[in-house]
Design a protein around this nucleic acid. Structure first.
Lengths: 165, 165
DNA sequence: ACAATATGTCAGCGTTGTTGACACTCCAAG
DNA sequence: CTTGGAGTGTCAACAACGCTGACATATTGT
C-alpha cells in the first residue's frame, strides 16, 4: 500500500479512499476490543461491563445519569450491568453527599485491578501502533478522530474531563 | 484541548494520552455507526446486515466463507442475516461456476441502493472530518489505524482487495 | 469409495440493547 | 406543607446478534 494515501493526493478524495478510512476505523475498533473481550468472557462479563468500568475509572464519583449520557444507553440496560458489578464487589455505589438521590460510583480495589488488566491490553496495542507510525502521524490521527465525533459526543467527552476533580 | 497532543510531546506518551486515543476510536466508531443504525432500524435490520451489505458491495461475488473470515463471526450468525437479505431481495446468491459448493454473493439493485444510502451517511461524516483536519492529518490517521489492525485482520483486509477483480 | 470442504439449518443459550410501567427518595417552588 | 419533577432502581417482555453443538446436503479431490 505504501504511499497510496500520501498527503498530496488527498486534495481530491475519492469515495474509495473515504471507504478505506471507514473500514480502518471498523477494524481498529475490533482490534482494540478483541483482547479485552477475551479476558471478560472468562468471567461472565461482556463489553458493556468493560465500558462501565472504563468510564468509572476515568471519572471516579461519576453519577449514574452522567454515565448514561456518556455511554448512550438506557438506564435499564446500564442498571443491569452496574448491579452485577456492585454485587461482585468491583464497583462501589455511594449515596451522594449534596444530593442523596444521586449515586456516586467508584471502583473497588478488585475493580481497579480488572480495569488495569483490560486497559493494559489496549494500551499495549495502541502504543505499538503509535510506535509503528510516528509522532506526526499520531497528532493527525487524534485530530481526525476528534473531528469525527459528533457535537453531542464531544460535549460529553470534554464535559467529562471537568468532572475529573 | 488545542495542542495537548502536539507532535513534540509525543516522544513521551503518558497512559493518559494513550487512553484518550483509545476513547477517540470508541467515540469515532459510534459516530460512524449511529446514522446507519438509525436508517436500518426503520426497516427491521441491524448493524450485522450493514456489515454484510458493505462487504458484499466491496467485493462482489465473494463467497460465504470469505465473508465469515472478514466479519469474524460464525456461519450460523451470518447465515441468519444473509437469509433475510436474500429473502428481501437485497442480496443474490449464485451457485459457483468452478466450485458448485460455493455461493457467490452479489447485491441486487435494491441492495445497492440501500448500501449507497448507508455509506453516504458515513462518507459525509468522514469527509467533514477530513476537511476539518487536513491532508497531513489524514495521512497520519490512516497510518496509525493500519498499524492498529492486527496481523490477521490486515491479511483479510488486503486479501480482500485482490478478490476485487 | 471415501474424506474433506462449503453451505445451510435447527435448537438452545447469553449479552446487551430496547419500551413501558411503576415505585421510591429527595429537592424546590408554590 | 403539598405538589411536581428529577434521579434512581426494578420488573416484564422483547429483539438483535453473538455463541456452541449437531446434523444434512452437495460437491470435490484423492
Amino acid at each position: 500500500m505504501g504511499d497510496s494515501y500520501g498527503s498530496e493526493s488527498l486534495l481530491f478524495l475519492t469515495d474509495e479512499q473515504i471507504r478505506q478510512g471507514i473500514e480502518a476505523v471498523y477494524f481498529a475498533y475490533r482490534g482494540l476490543t478483541s483482547e479485552p473481550d477475551r479476558i471478560l468472557a472468562t468471567m461472565a462479563y461482556g463489553r458493556a461491563h468493560h465500558r462501565a468500568i472504563h468510564f468509572i475509572n476515568r471519572a471516579p464519583g461519576t453519577t449514574v445519569t452522567n454515565l448514561l449520557e456518556i455511554l448512550g444507553v438506557t438506564k435499564q440496560s446500564l442498571n443491569r450491568v452496574l448491579r452485577t458489578l456492585i454485587e461482585d464487589g468491583l464497583v462501589e455505589s455511594r449515596v451522594g453527599k449534596v444530593d442523596k438521590r444521586e449515586r456516586n460510583l467508584f471502583l473497588t480495589e478488585t475493580g481497579t485491578a480488572l480495569e488495569a488488566r483490560l486497559s493494559d491490553a489496549q494500551r499495549t496495542r495502541m502504543r505499538a501502533a503509535y510506535r509503528d507510525a510516528g509522532p506526526e502521524d499520531v497528532a493527525g490521527f487524534r485530530r481526525v478522530l476528534e473531528a469525527m465525533m459528533d457535537t453531542e459526543m464531544r460535549r460529553r467527552y470534554t464535559g467529562l474531563r471537568e468532572t475529573n476533580s
